[in-house]
Design a protein around this nucleic acid. Structure first.
Lengths: 181, 181
DNA sequence: TGATTATAATTAGCCGGCTAACTATGTCAA
DNA sequence: TTGACATAGTTAGCCGGCTAATTATAATCA
């Protein structure tokens, strides 16, 4: 997601700000810092899961199934909840089924529908991974007390609320520029 | 990075915590929240850059070149600073060269070395993208004042410092000796 | 009824990461 | 001088996302 290792130094940001007067140095620094930390955490999570033979995508599928009372769900539901396309979910389920962690059952009444269920092996895998995962997250966050966590989350919400600003068709139209396309 | 759209509700976290007593509910919630927000920002950034015909990887290359006094650098330097493999950097440069945004020049003294330079067209592209980017970041962060940004960054540092906890070979039982920054 | 449309899942093929192998060039010491 | 090694970049091929097209089944209505 944010691969960049060499975040701009204050000097570089200042230099760029002279060429581009719209630059808000502390805003950019904070934004990049947030992406940098999150990227490192995500990569570290991947590494942790790989020690148990899982990858993030597959792990989420198992978790989503375990949340269900019936330990099962339709591929389309899983895709939506996991935030991936149905095609990607098909691939994830293929892999999990090959490893025996989930099972596919075609619906008897509606032949188009398929139900994916967590197998005993799948549950066992989660029972191995989750305690390790939870211990690591506990440790990761041990530097922040409850109040700190609350505060971090409330600041994240503020930033999150601004994210549509990044999306608008032509930017916060300060001064309209002429580009085609 | 964190595709998951359906973050666990407090009820689900509680249910999992009963099965896995090591779970620290607020730690997990904060961790996931951080990844969720960062992922949305990253995707929004991608969408913004795509409006100018760029992708994150290529954009970073142009920025790294613009930082240099000579507007040029070696592919290996760029790869390291951008945090991608040399092979990936070769591909990025291929695309940028094809679009005329950078230029490759083989070193006269050492035939193995190549210098990548920003072309006028590359600079012009940046001059189009950067003001838009900066305006959007300014808007994104407008909900936090300077003190808030400082505080957010200091909390990010605390979390970042704990990230080695996610990596340790066999859970946080053994303390990783990584210590930097 | 039977043609048309809608829905669920899958398949096909693209793209941008990666690692590992390869090519070309330079360096150094026997 | 030349053979072993080192270095810079590229190429080859894998993998997991994606979109778009396809297959199979169900639902609708003239």
């Amino acid at each position: 997601m944010l691969q960049l290792r060499d975040l701009p130094t204050p000097e570089i940001l200042g230099k760029f700000a002279r060429r581009y007067p719209d630059a808000d140095v502390t805003a950019v620094a904070t934004f990049l810092h947030l992406l940098r930390v999150a990227t490192d955490l995500s990569m570290a999570l991947d590494a942790c899961l790989q020690q148990h033979g899982l990858l993030q995508g597959r792990w989420w599928v198992l978790l989503l199934l375990m949340r269900e009372e019936t330990l099962s769900a339709a591929p389309s539901q899983l895709a939506e909840k996991a935030g991936v396309s149905r095609a990607t979910m098909t691939g994830l389920i293929d892999g999990l089924e090959r490893d025996g962690l989930v099972r596919r059952v075609t619906d008897l009444e509606d032949g188009r529908r398929v139900t994916v269920s967590l197998t005993d092996a799948g549950q066992a895998t989660l029972d191995e991974v989750m305690p390790d995962y939870y211990r690591r997250i506990r440790q990761l966050m041990s530097g922040l007390d409850e109040a700190g966590r609350e505060q971090l989350q409330s600041m994240l919400k503020i930033v999150h609320a601004g994210s549509p600003a990044l999306l608008g068709r032509d930017g916060p139209a300060d001064q309209p520029e002429n580009h085609e396309e």
